[in-house]
Design a protein around this nucleic acid. Structure first.
Lengths: 127, 127
DNA sequence: GAAGGTACCCACTATTTGGTAAGCTACTAA
DNA sequence: TTAGTAGCTTACCAAATAGTGGGTACCTTC
């Protein structure tokens, strides 16, 4: 059990504790849409509409909600230009970029292994 | 936009496409309890009860459900010994271990940054 | 004989998450 | 005049997720 224990010891807070506030952070950074938003912004600054179009299947509601959470956690910076039509830019903060460095390998892993994993799943109604 | 585009190009499938099957894999590996189970098992094999006790706050139902999903995706291996009382061991497969290699840096990042992030959040009911 | 441990499953309920569709402001183009 | 654009917000509803409490089987300990 050496490794798992050392993990809990090394980090400042214990993610394995039920009431640890880090749990909320973990939930945000591993949320369904949060991951994709962070990775999408890892390339460069995107406008609202660009973000919406680049993340297939996201609804406006979910995009807005996800961006608000990520902004509150200091991962994403929102810049409004009061022009007509309005222009709103989203970019990663330093913190967001350091998070993206951890998320990109994960997303790449999913991309590399997804086909195999899906193909290997037992069928739901197998006899 | 070079980086974000190259990310989509490099991986075999496009995680940004709405109907891509990789989305389900992404959902599983970033699920609330899935992350903690994988990381907990990264140290070594654990029994059902050990797993339950080491992940604070998880219910039996959620642990069972999470383990079934991870087993179906080939991340976790379940070994039953038909002794009395029954003994069931859970361990990572090779695939699970390679996933853990991507998840541990993320969880460590959360552990290192959680305090700062939580402290910096705007207060909900600020005047 | 009652209680406890192990590793679950099942039904029911509650909470959270997510989707759909509409509306909003202020403009421009047809 | 109507439609369209940009970037949202709100209300309503469906679905997924999560918790509770019970039951199971078989044995050991009190």
């Amino acid at each position: 059990m050496s490794e798992a224990v050392s993990l809990q010891t090394v980090v400042g807070v214990n993610v394995f504790a039920a009431n640890c506030p880090s749990r909320s952070v973990l939930d945000h950074v591993t949320s369904k849409w949060g991951v994709l938003v962070i990775v999408a912004l890892s390339g460069d600054t995107l406008r609202w509409g660009e973000l919406r179009r680049s993340i297939g299947g996201i609804s406006e509601k979910m995009l807005a909600q996800t961006l608000r959470v990520l902004e509150a956690d200091g991962m994403v910076l929102r810049t409004v230009q009061a022009t007509i039509p309005p222009r709103v830019d989203y970019q990663l903060t330093d913190r967001g970029r350091s998070l993206a460095d951890r998320l990109i390998p994960l997303v790449e892993w999913v991309g590399d292994n997804a086909v195999e994993i899906v193909a290997g799943r037992p069928e739901a109604g197998a006899s």
